[in-house]
Design a binder for these strands. Structure first.
Lengths: 341, 341
DNA sequence: GTGAAAGCGCTAACAT
DNA sequence: ATGTTAGCGCTTTCAC
């Protein structure tokens, strides 16, 4: 109880309190090697009574092993990355590994800083969103000598291994579903984010597939900041005013799509006959809307789980050979806003 | 480029490559002490060319200082904690400190494990959600000797310092607004979470204030799991079926409130005359709904900022005397679903 | 089953 | 302005 000594306890303290050598105390606390039941008891008792918390810094330095996995993502407020985290945690919970999160705000320089910071803690692996990184970031990752899993996207060349979906394909498939639905006059709405490569790739796949069917996007609009639901509503209103003949609206995410859907419903549009809508991500959050928005699942949890599994395996068995590219297949969900034929 | 040697680089490598002593290299890399411009250049060049990443583990062990702040929260998928994180990051970005997140899933045993794990990295401070912790957790926090900020709640006794709102007061104030609005037959819906102490306290404050006005809650219902929007809708439907005379619905969070609101609108209820609704949290996400749900801001970012500021100050100046209890005052927003008089 | 010695990669403190 | 020495708290290795 003496609050006098602020110095954290060390193994030595436990050793003295229990009358067991530091080395054996260490063994007990890590469940390593053979220790007699009696000494074990003594040590455990002393450690608990003192309230000893091991110093992982010293442990990591001595053992050259750190049970941390760096997870580097663009944002937490996006609803999609927390789900990736959930998948990662699920898997790592059964291992010694622990995720540590860093956020980049979609800024390459910040990504570089965060990466440098995290690598300087010598984690056992890195899970990082996207395939696009600065040269410096790529160099650091390559030089790190640890497993690097790039997630969310497979359209590109991974540094080491990638796990995700093809956003180009996702855009393409949605375009094909729209074409099949006999929609012809199509508007697109998305985020004004030159650095959101995955949204860009979806858009590219989308326009490319439409192009093959001789269709060109009639209207497009991009937003930034603010409440996505409100923005979707506003953009939709503006776009339908500009071109009332539009018969389909493709949104780069479900939240703005939901805003658009609410707008269309309130204004008496006949959905999905007169006008169809689709978003992207498949966020569970939106179940409960008056109508189900057509969307495409982005396999977020699954991506997190798979990435974590790969890291765990590679930590166990460093020389194991695994696929360098794991593509998951998102499935379209038609909801109530996309004619299905 | 030689991939041969997997061993990470050390200061010694930079020292040899630059012909400068390890100590001076260290000084350059940390911007400490006086180093001549020329040596500085040499060192920086060598470090960059080699791709040296400092080993923070060794640095932390030697200097006995770790620029990490442990942030321990119940969940990431809640929408409220990411916002707290945003506030924390905003402040810590201007310091040497770095947040590290741990998630407890509202489970005290998991909180204990996460806390132990994080404390074993000897962080400079802890920000932890809530005032309720197991005895073991409290003991660890007390013994840690570092600043401990308990956030989100001020109804209780902090271990060290707390920053948040009074959920009891929040419940009370909403009750008072409802009474002023002349509502009389009130239903409550919330999460089935015995461990969500803040929701519980809001509920207690709410019923207490109603009780003083001679009103008792007419109906209540609790859910767990699933899409909050959908659950809010379902629960509302069920509750209004059971008791069609209800004239107010109080929800323990905005998402289920929004579900209820959508349900009521679709079913031709006259809002807020025939029936009023209110949620809690003030999530920006929901702007863009056809009508604005009455709610109460829970000051999430502000809480994060304030907590981070306190940690930063205490790290700078360990003996500084600061308030042990910082109460922020959430304000009610009436939206379109609560009569205001 | 237990202990003693050496050292992980860095920095504080003290030379120079 | 730069270098030397000692040691942070643990684990590895080897001896008993």
């Amino acid at each position: 109880m003496s609050k006098s000594d602020a110095r954290p306890l060390t193994l030595r303290d436990v050793s003295e309190a229990s009358g067991v050598s530091e080395m054996t105390v260490s063994r007990v606390l890590r469940n390593r090697g053979d220790v007699s039941a009696t000494t074990r008891e003594k040590v455990l008792k002393a450690a608990k009574e003192l309230g000893y918390v091991p110093n992982k810094i010293a442990g990591a330095l001595a053992s050259q092993r750190v049970n941390l996995v760096a997870v580097i993502i663009p944002s937490l407020s996006n609803m999609v990355f927390p789900e990736v985290m959930t998948g990662i945690s699920q898997i790592l919970e059964d291992t010694e590994l622990q995720p540590v999160v860093g956020v980049t705000d979609y800024q390459p320089e910040k990504e570089e800083r965060v990466l440098f910071e995290m690598l300087s803690w010598r984690p056992s692996g890195v899970i990082i969103a996207g395939l696009e990184h600065s040269d410096a970031s790529r160099a650091m990752l390559k030089a790190s000598g640890i497993p690097v899993i790039e997630i969310m996207d497979v359209d590109g060349t991974p540094i080491d291994t990638c796990v995700g979906i093809s956003h180009r394909r996702a855009g393409r498939e949605m375009a094909q579903a729209i074409i099949k639905g006999r929609y012809e006059r199509i508007g697109f709405m998305g985020t004004k984010m030159p650095l959101d490569h995955r949204a860009r790739k979806r858009f590219e796949g989308f326009t490319e597939a439409l192009g093959k069917a001789g269709i060109e996007i009639a209207e497009r609009e991009f937003y930034s900041g603010g409440s996505a639901l409100a923005k979707g509503r506003e953009m939709t209103a503006a776009m339908l005013k500009r071109d009332p003949e539009l018969d389909f609206l493709y949104y780069s995410n479900d939240m703005i799509g939901a805003g658009g859907l609410l707008y269309c419903m309130e204004n008496g549009y006949n959905i999905p006959e007169q006008i169809g809508l689709a978003g992207f991500n498949g966020v569970e959050l939106l179940q409960g809307l008056p109508r189900q928005l057509a969307t495409m699942d982005s396999c977020r949890q699954e991506i997190g789980r798979k990435a974590a599994e790969i890291i765990a395996q590679r930590v166990e068995e460093p020389n194991i050979e695994l696929d360098k590219r794991v593509e998951l297949m998102p499935k379209i969900s038609f909801g109530d806003t996309l004619k299905r034929r």
